[in-house]
């Protein structure tokens, strides 16, 4: 084998054993201790775990304030919740406030919708059957939103009904419907073109026993009146039928009484005993005429309109208006 030692260009005077020693010594001189240094792994040994990072967002905020005024009852607390209309089952925030707390919540601007009335703030008073207060709103920018004052009251008692004419069962529009107690009117309404009416009263009225319902029709028919009793419930339906029966008006010429407290007398002569007084709107069916007086009869509904009683007597012509 041709080596450095035996080649023509080699160093013939050095013995092979010495050459090996020189080679090792030379390497130590040149490399130092690193000549025998440890092998290094070519890659970083990484754990490949998820990086430790914290992300903190700062949003522009919207503060929502709601003031309240208790009209009826004593709520023990209030639940105030904000919803996005697109997900009415999951509140963006829901918080309990005690009666003396200021009702206010703060939300990041971006969680609220900018569409019209796309968000709703709902206040639910706790502790009784209170009305729920809802406020629909939209957001354009950060800041403070003050909702209108929430009036807290227990759910009202509601009277509904319809007023119709006895002949033909047609609805009466524009009838004035009132609930009165021993002091005066506590609630009123007017019938719509279907003859329907609704009257709301504060919750305590559900237990009142001194309530009466009256229906008046500006003199077209006699005033209707009946006692009502909610019997502790919050809803009552009361149909009202007014006017004379067809059977009654077919008995003669029909007149309407045009003045309250019109005397209905036993005889035509002056000073004849008065049976009773008629009201404006009462129907009088005449059989005969004597001077300025008419003889005929009136029909009085008894026992919630199921039974009628007829009375005969005399009325002065000036108190009547001919109908048919």
């Amino acid at each position: 084998m041709k080596t450095l030692l035996n080649s023509p260009m080699g160093i013939r005077w050095i013995k092979p054993v010495c050459f090996l020693s020189f080679l090792i010594l030379g390497n130590f001189c040149f490399w130092g201790c690193s000549f025998v240094r440890t092998i290094e792994y070519p890659e970083l040994i990484l754990l490949n775990s998820n990086p430790v990072v914290s992300v903190r967002y700062e949003y522009e905020n919207v503060q929502l304030n709601l003031s309240k005024q208790v009209l009826d009852g004593e709520p023990t607390a209030y639940r105030f919740s904000i919803f996005n209309n697109s997900d009415i089952n999951s509140p963006l925030i829901s918080k309990i406030f005690f009666p003396d707390d200021t009702i206010t919540v703060m939300l990041p601007l971006n969680v609220l919708s900018i569409e019209d009335s796309a968000n709703v703030a709902i206040l639910i008073p706790q502790g009784d059957d209170f009305e729920i207060v809802e406020n629909y709103f939209s957001i354009e920018q950060s800041g403070v939103i003050e909702f209108p004052t929430a009036y807290i009251r227990r759910k009202p008692v509601i009277l509904v009904g319809n007023v119709s004419r006895r002949i033909g069962d047609t609805p009466i529009e524009g009838a004035k419907v009132q609930i009165i107690d021993s002091i005066g009117v506590v609630g009123s309404s007017e019938t719509n073109n279907f003859g329907q009416f609704t009257i709301e009263l504060p919750s305590p009225f559900k237990d009142r026993k001194d309530l009466n319902l009256t229906v008046s029709t500006a003199g077209k028919f006699s005033r209707w009146r009946n006692q009502i009793d909610f019997q502790g419930e919050k809803w009552l339906s009361q149909p009202v039928v007014i006017g004379p029966r067809a059977l009654f008006v077919n008995q003669g010429m029909v007149y309407r009484v045009i003045q309250n407290n019109t005397p209905f007398r036993e005889g035509p002569e002056n000073g004849s005993p008065i049976r009773f007084f008629l009201s404006e709107g009462d129907i009088f069916v005449a059989e005969k005429v004597a001077g300025d007086q008419l003889f005929g009869r009136v029909e009085i509904p008894i026992d919630k309109n199921d039974y009628f009683q007829h009375f005969e007597g005399w009325i002065k012509n000036k108190y009547l208006n001919f109908i048919q």
Partner: peptide, 24 residues
């Protein structure tokens, strides 16, 4: 150790990302 982090930036006014680097 280098960090390679995929990040879904949400709509917000401001965001702070704080990374903890592990020593080699």
């Amino acid at each position: 150790a280098p960090i390679h982090y995929s990040f879904d930036l949400q709509t917000a006014g401001f965001a702070v990302l704080r990374f903890q680097l592990n020593r080699i």
